[in-house]
Design a protein around this nucleic acid. Structure first.
Length: 242
DNA sequence: AAAAGATGCAACCGCAAGGGA
DNA sequence: ATCCCTTGCGGTTGCATCTTT
């Protein structure tokens, strides 16, 4: 049998939304709220759209107070830090970026931020090679996660506290959802700023011997111990998800 | 100017979780 | 406990636009 479709595929329009459809959906929700269910909503307002599609359109585009412009450095940093901590849990990450949607952040990460990071890292990498970075002792655990021991103190002593690479201070974790509060608590000990991420990646490549800048298949999960050595103690992560 | 390739974003798809019957 | 329905999520795709040749 299989799963029943959520809507009548044959009579449902797909693709980009017209301004008329947007207007219908927006005005209805502004007047009545979502009301019953998303699935019944398109019928109520005479839209030939799937309920899921309406929901997505509202959440990602029509909802008030959404930002559509460029991302700030601070937003970049938040995304990077959370991605390296909790992975691709975009909805959770989006709770820390008011006005940004999970879809928006996901797209931004996949299409731009990743490249931006790698680009800066490559620049740093070239500088690092000239400066001969100190050797890091690296062990590999059975599960394949790279663990750096002992944690280097150099970065923290050079950039204590929450000051980021622009000399600003990142916001406190107060008011965050409890799960993120737990995560961001480690920020007080973690090296700050995107510069550290670029530097850490460079160091990791140095120690692993993979130095071809063109190799872009980055396993970000494996990078976490390099990015934030303090999150690993004696071969055990002090923070784990799930 | 036109074709080809690259990029960015909106939207779709399928699955899992949550909740009510 | 189980089923069914709805919602929410993350991965992926499609397509419009931009850039390069």
């Amino acid at each position: 049998m299989g799963r029943a479709p959520c809507c009548d595929k044959a009579n449902v329009k797909k693709g980009l939304w017209s301004t008329e459809e947007d207007a219908k959906l927006k005005s209805y929700i502004e007047q009545h709220g979502i009301g019953g269910s998303w699935i019944s909503l398109p019928k109520k307002i005479g839209l030939r759209r799937c309920g899921k599609s309406c929901r997505l359109r509202w959440l990602n585009y029509l909802r008030p107070n959404l930002k559509h412009g460029e991302y700030s450095e601070e937003e970049d940093e938040i995304i990077c830090r959370l991605y390296l901590t909790i992975g691709s849990r975009w909805s959770l990450i989006s709770t820390q970026l008011p006005g940004r949607t999970d879809n928006d952040i996901k797209n931004y990460w996949n299409t731009r931020l990743k490249k931006k990071l790698l680009g800066k890292q490559q620049k740093h990498h070239r500088q690092a090679r000239r400066a001969t970075a100190p050797q890091q002792e690296v062990k590999i655990r059975e599960n394949g996660i790279l663990v750096q021991l002992p944690p280097s103190e150099a970065h923290r002593s050079a950039s204590p506290g929450m000051a980021d690479s622009h000399g600003e201070t990142s916001g406190s974790s107060s008011g965050f959802p409890s799960e993120l509060d737990e995560i961001l608590r480690f920020d007080s000990a973690a090296p700050q700023g995107l510069d550290y991420l670029y530097e850490a990646r460079g160091m990791a490549e140095e120690s692993s011997g993979t130095s071809t800048p063109e190799e872009e298949s980055t396993n970000w999960d494996e990078m976490i111990p390099f990015m934030y050595p303090d999150w690993v103690h004696g071969g055990q992560e002090i923070f784990t998800m799930q």
